[in-house]
Design a protein around this nucleic acid. Structure first.
Lengths: 192, 192
DNA sequence: GTCTATAGAAAGATAGAC
DNA sequence: GTCTATCTTTCTATAGAC
């Protein structure tokens, strides 16, 4: 047998990684299967051995990106959870995250895209949003009496800040908006 | 002459109105010129008598939507500017705005869409965002010492809240997020 | 100015060889 | 499992009649 099971798994991973990169760079519709598979080091025809349709890849790519997101990572032993959350927010609302990051947050890069797509994709987005805000609510727990509500607004602010700044043709404005969002986010985290 | 200048202007307005409705409903790429012109009561071929390309329509539609936005409206004589801003935010972050409104905010409904588009479209978006946040900063002036920065974060929060809730397949979650964003927005407006 | 008809260029998905 | 070749559909944009 020339192709092992492991080989197939690796191909699938490469497709998913390419999808995250290309979708975040130019959106779902603009990425063709040809582009995608070339980026992953294969040709168009091989795609359907891994996914039933382009739509299915959409959901899978969002899940894959969420699993490797810094927000999902464990809090290091040596810092407390509030400090950890501050660090997450600083990194999320940064210029580095806007410009071709390794781990782009598809929640922010593709909000509108998802809203216009099939129910299955929207369901996946909704699920990931819940996980993301629950995680942040947990990290807030020690300082914050109304953490569930604050975590929801914080998630919307983070996603909105990144999504909006990515559209700008004006880097200075992006810096100002990111900075304003970081300040507001910090005050939400530290609110009693 | 069977067609007056006024008739042409009216046709153009109908196309713009249809664009705002359809773009906000299903995104830029998914709206075909056929769909658009049928919705506007004409056929495909007539489109190019009004716009050079679909892309040009994109920018024009965003401008048109911004000009008729409630945020751009004058403050009524009988209420003060802070109260007016609260009203704007309440209406913006509402279920009614999410579901097929007359005046959908394309800034929120199309953020991601725009980010993946041509520089011209992004420039238009950037310009409108500045207008929107300046307007809100002015309305905040009387209560708020750091209004320029707060207005930027407020705009990002509003756009993020609406964009995110529109993707959800879960109405209850959308209600919770909208409510959390309204609460945070109100605290930003009233901050000293 | 608006119409119908069509050119011309993709794209998603499938078929069959290796 | 991956390849090349192709079917089929769809879309933007143009041409020319009225």
């Amino acid at each position: 047998m020339p192709y092992t099971k492991e080989h197939k798994t690796q191909s699938r991973e490469r497709i998913l990684a390419s999808a995250i990169t290309l979708f975040s760079r130019q959106g779902y519709d603009s990425v063709t299967l040809d582009m995608l598979m070339t980026h992953a080091g294969m040709t168009r025809g091989a795609f359907y051995n891994h996914f039933d349709s382009k739509q299915e890849l959409y959901s899978e790519a969002m899940i894959s990106a969420a699993l490797t997101s810094p927000i999902a990572e464990e809090t290091p032993e040596d810092i407390d959870s509030i400090e950890h959350l501050h660090n997450i927010v600083e990194a999320y609302l940064s210029q580095a995250h806007l410009q071709e990051p390794d781990n782009p947050c598809l929640m922010a890069f593709m909000v509108t895209d998802v809203a216009n797509n099939e129910p299955e994709v929207r369901k996946t987005y909704t699920h990931i949003f819940k996980r993301m805000s629950h995680r942040m609510a947990n990290l807030m727990e020690s300082s914050n009496a109304r953490e569930p509500q604050n975590a929801l607004a914080l998630a919307a602010l983070m996603i909105g800040g990144v999504a909006v700044c990515r559209t700008f043709s004006d880097d200075k404005l992006a810096d100002e908006v990111l900075s304003a969002c970081r300040a507001l986010a910090a005050s939400v985290i530290d609110a009693e």
